[in-house]
């Protein structure tokens, strides 16, 4: 029972984290906070993928093998899911790239307008 709760707790937390990030991206006025929100949203998604790839009682997805190159028959259930991992490796890298671009833009915008505050910037721009 408790285990089941944790199982769905996991997914609930995923949704909560993502929504925190989304909310920050949409509603926060500060550009840096928006960037943080974006990063949080992305980690939420990553957590989602990792959660779905988790296996109870599994080990790392590094196969046991003998040194002479021969290998045993592999039971997939014994190893963690590699596919979700590599998908998320990609997502992390994409995320940091996007974050870098967003921060750069935020920095330039700040220098133009002396502010990180979205409304203030828009006021200034519309003058």
């Amino acid at each position: 029972m408790l285990q089941e709760l944790i199982a769905s707790y996991n997914y609930i937390i995923v949704v909560v984290i993502m929504m925190i990030g989304l909310w920050a991206m949409l509603a926060k006025q500060n550009l840096i906070k928006k960037c943080i929100g974006m990063a949080i949203f992305q980690t939420g998604i990553i957590l989602f993928y990792i959660s779905m790839g988790a296996k109870k009682g599994s080990t790392l997805p590094i196969l046991e093998h003998a040194h002479d190159g021969a290998h045993h028959a592999v039971v997939a259930a014994h190893y963690a899911n590699p596919l979700t991992q590599i998908l998320m490796l990609t997502a992390i890298v994409v995320g940091v790239a996007t974050l870098g671009v967003a921060l750069t833009l935020a920095q330039k915008v700040y220098q133009q307008n002396r502010s990180y505050h979205e409304d203030k910037i828009l006021e200034k721009l519309s003058k």
């Binding site: 949409l26 998604i45 671009v101 967003a102 833009l105 910037i121």
Partner: peptide, 25 residues
């Protein structure tokens, strides 16, 4: 002025991409 416009674009674009990725998930 393109900088602020792009920043908004980055935010919306990321939301779009994240939604897509989540949907695929």
């Amino acid at each position: 002025r393109s900088l602020m416009a792009t920043f908004n674009y980055v935010m919306m674009g990321s939301i779009g991409a994240c939604f897509y990725l989540l949907g695929v998930g």
